[in-house]
């Protein structure tokens, strides 16, 4: 009990923030629904929650939504998986081998900082709009967070800990298992959080271009057809998936690496 804690405002209770947040969301949708009682409703440009819900039910019942999501999921996970397999080892090598780090750092920074998405049209034309093209776009966007975070993780290893483990008689393998891995893993998982966002962009870019299936294609097709209800339903679905994925990783970070809480 330090004196400083007192000066913070007193909260009403444990669940106050959750309640307030839920209330705000409910209010938002209610206001959205209600506003068309006052403002004329043009179904070509805007939808309202009741119609979106109906559209969503339609899409689920017909199986369309699930099919599109399944199509999009394959390149998403393949590209993300490849990004982990390539990015993490590369990042570890860059962090551990000082000279390799020197040599590759500027190059990777340039790649990371440039809007690589700009190569998407090329990749689409070269590899097609199918699975390979999308997977490669996803990979090329998602690999960099893994490289950088794995590298940062290795560089963040406390050298004193290496000495401690050594002095206690630990060998090379113990160093990897007891010092390197616990230090790098949280960084990699944090990188995954960023990579997921970029992977989603990759899938959407690929599918907006010229695909004939997938959730991105569905959104742009419903837009072309002025099927706004279904378009909103798809957009909200993508939002929910994105939130579940990133918050899921956040949750995993909190429970798997409790010692890093607050970073």
């Amino acid at each position: 009990m330090t004196e400083q804690t007192v000066i913070q405002p007193r909260l009403m209770g444990r669940y106050r923030n959750v309640v307030l947040g839920a209330l705000a969301v409910v209010l938002f949708f209610a206001a959205w629904q209600a506003i068309f009682l006052v403002v004329p409703f043009n179904p070509l440009f805007i939808s309202k929650p009741s119609l979106i819900a109906a559209g969503f039910v339609d899409l689920v019942a017909s199986g369309e939504l699930f099919d599109d999501l399944a199509v999009s999921a394959v390149p998403f996970f393949l590209g993300l998986g490849a990004a982990v397999v390539v990015g993490v080892p590369l990042g570890i090598v860059m962090g551990w081998r000082v000279r390799i780090g020197y040599a590759l750092d500027p190059l990777m920074t340039i790649f990371y900082a440039s809007p690589l998405v700009a190569l998407a049209p090329l990749l689409v034309i070269f590899f097609g709009v199918g699975l390979p093209g999308k997977t490669i776009i996803v990979f090329s966007l998602a690999v960099f967070p893994f490289i950088f975070n794995a590298c940062a993780g290795v560089r963040a290893v406390d050298r004193r800990l290496i000495d401690v483990v050594r002095s206690l008689g630990g060998g090379e393998w113990d160093l990897y298992r007891k010092v390197l891995l616990p230090s790098v893993l949280p960084f990699v998982v944090a990188g995954a959080r960023i990579a997921i966002g970029r992977a989603l962009i990759g899938v959407l870019v690929g599918e907006f271009f010229a695909a004939s299936e997938g959730i991105g294609f569905a959104i742009s097709r419903f837009g072309d057809l002025f099927a706004i209800d279904k378009m909103f339903a798809c957009i909200l679905t993508v939002m929910v998936i994105a939130v579940v994925l990133t918050e899921g990783i956040r949750f995993a970070e909190r429970s798997a690496f409790p010692w890093r809480r607050g970073q």
Partner: peptide
């Protein structure tokens, strides 16, 4: 008396 949220109140003085 301090009344921190989610914890028992503490009589300071």
């Amino acid at each position: 008396t301090f009344r921190p949220p989610n914890r028992a109140p503490v009589r300071a003085l």
